[in-house]
Write a protein that binds this DNA or RNA. Sequence first.
RNA 1: UUGGAAGGGCGGAGAAUCGCUUUCAGCGCAAGUUGGAAGAGGAAAGUCCGAACACCAUUGGGCGCGAUGCCGCGUAACUCAAGUCCGUUCGAUUGAGAUACACGCGGGCGGAAUGAAAAUUCCGACGGAUAGUGCCACAGAAAAUUAAACCGCCUUUGGACGCAAGUUCAGAGGUAAGGGUGAAAAGGUGCGGUAAGAGCGCACCGCGCGAAGCGCAAGCGACGCGGCACGGAAAACCCCAUCGGGUGCAAGGCCAAAUAGGGAAUCCUUGGAGCGGCCCGCUCCAGUCCGCGAAAGCAGACGGAUUCCGGGUAUCGGUCGCACAGAUAAAUGAUUCUCUCCGCUCGUAAGAGCGCAGACAGAAUUCGGCUUACAGCCCUUCCAAAACC
RNA 2: CGGAGCGUAGCUCAGCCUGGCUAGAGCACUUGGUUUGGGACCAAGACGUCGCAGGUUCAAAUCCUGUCGCUCCGA
Length: 126
Amino acid sequence: MSAETPKRPPALRFGRDSRLAQSRDFARVRQQGERLALGCLIANWNKLPDGAKPKLGVVTSKKIGGAPERSRARRLLRESFRLHQHEFAQPVELVLVARNSIAGKNFADVEKDFLAALNKAKLLKN
RNA sequence: UUGGAAGGGCGGAGAAUCGCUUUCAGCGCAAGUUGGAAGAGGAAAGUCCGAACACCAUUGGGCGCGAUGCCGCGUAACUCAAGUCCGUUCGAUUGAGAUACACGCGGGCGGAAUGAAAAUUCCGACGGAUAGUGCCACAGAAAAUUAAACCGCCUUUGGACGCAAGUUCAGAGGUAAGGGUGAAAAGGUGCGGUAAGAGCGCACCGCGCGAAGCGCAAGCGACGCGGCACGGAAAACCCCAUCGGGUGCAAGGCCAAAUAGGGAAUCCUUGGAGCGGCCCGCUCCAGUCCGCGAAAGCAGACGGAUUCCGGGUAUCGGUCGCACAGAUAAAUGAUUCUCUCCGCUCGUAAGAGCGCAGACAGAAUUCGGCUUACAGCCCUUCCAAAACC
RNA sequence: CGGAGCGUAGCUCAGCCUGGCUAGAGCACUUGGUUUGGGACCAAGACGUCGCAGGUUCAAAUCCUGUCGCUCCGA
């Protein structure tokens, strides 16, 4: 993970243990965690102790559109998290809520909003 | 060739890297890791019908409720049997049985449009109005029980006027041909008939009843009889016949260990908390047992069912293999390259450039149907226009 | 998976059950009056594919069928 082993970057995996799966996990993060709205998403997060794995949950409500739009929004947000999961300053439980404006956006736009939100929340390393 | 209508079909291809779900194989005590294979649709949608499947209820019948309502044929999941080919494709075997008052096809009958007709096209919730109750606004004399006299027509009585023919006023009666109202006025046309009229009589048409014959049937119907009785509407209530028990995979099951919470047992022993200055004591909790009642999990659920070979007590191993999405805060994604389709621009052309393969849309127990959405392309038939032969 | 309701003028609703009358009410809008001017008030006016399509009927906002959209509820 440190800069001294740049030859083999850490694996960008996103398995079951990187996801929030239960309703009470979502409720805990959204009630007790911190919150920030920016661009096409709303971020809720709860800091975890060092050494834990970061976890992600995505909420796509019916307001976004039909099932294809909701699935696409979820996949784009999840991919953004997957590609940048090792850049967190501290492990967090993160719940991303998609807003209406995400419909029709491509991956680059969504990734930009994702990084901007995390920067503003001071969750990234740099 | 272009445009339109109807019907049917397709709904990009190949590759690289990083990921996800399922599964197989290898390595590893395990966590895991490496490699292979597979991974959204014609509508997966709406949830509008029906079926399967599961559980609950159930002697039988009645009432009620709902659905269906011309005739014939056909069709799924499913079940059974045979076979074990094909290898991933264009197409993942064949045969038989079974169900549908889902639906499809064909036919009959009815209606509408076009037409001189024949006919063609389209549409039809297509049992019953003589089982009963109720309704038919406005207009009109009258709107359904024996129909009904506003104008008119005819006969006639009385009065007035007039030489008379006759005119007019009032009344009595006949009359449904004509006018007028209406969506609809109680058969139509013609001839006879009559004071005037009238199925009053006759012919044809229509209607009703019967019927040889034809057709699997719905039904058609030569011919005969009847003077005509039967308005509309059951998508008003209703009657008749047929069918339907209810709930739905969040159905319905299972769960080693452990648990929020709960119940039981027990104060013998142990720990903790409270009352108390301390001990004894008392109370509570945990420890013990029970337990799917919440979360989580397994399974239902997407299948190697079956055959053959070898050994065995159960059964195990191998082989062939009709299988070939199986998620659960819910996989099927991200980035990039090449090709092709289509559109636009430039160009005589070859071609070049631009446009995110660009529409509707994401499986959730399974199957069949219906309906709705849909960029672009292809095929068939028909119609119209233009060009050519 | 199952159930219930709604769609009528720019907005909020009535009328639908039991078909016919001019599709109506309030707010909003326009014009005129009143006032020094505005508001309020008075008078007049305009505003409707009754969500869409088809059917039944002489006649449909109303009855029936299909369809589209929206809202809510239960496990």
